[in-house]
């Protein structure tokens, strides 16, 4: 069983930002974000049996309030390493 790491993701108009209790990374693209997340997860030893799944749930609070009444879910993405 890989380690499952739950984190939040949002975009602030310039960067994607992934936050977790143990780390926070920023990047212009999702590719950049993924690379940085993988690196920090490895560095901090957050894996189990050499595997981890990072579950990034889009932070609903980062969706403008007037739009939330139409749809409050942007996306959740999973990155495996």
């Amino acid at each position: 069983m890989p380690m499952v790491i739950y984190a939040s993701i949002r975009h602030d108009g310039k960067d994607w930002i992934v936050k977790h209790d143990a780390f926070e990374v920023r990047g212009k693209t999702l590719d950049e974000i993924d690379e940085k997340v993988k690196q920090v997860v490895r560095e901090k030893g957050l894996m189990r049996g050499g595997k981890a799944q990072v579950y990034m749930a889009y932070d609903n609070n980062a969706i403008p309030q007037w739009i939330r009444q139409y749809s409050s879910h942007y996306f959740d993405r999973v990155v495996e390493l």
């Binding site: 590719d31 993988k38 996306f75 993405r77």
Partner: peptide, 15 residues
Amino acid sequence: RRPGERVPASEVWHR
């Protein structure tokens, strides 16, 4: 095709 990215099926329910 980002390496390791996968789409969770739970998305259908969340939307």
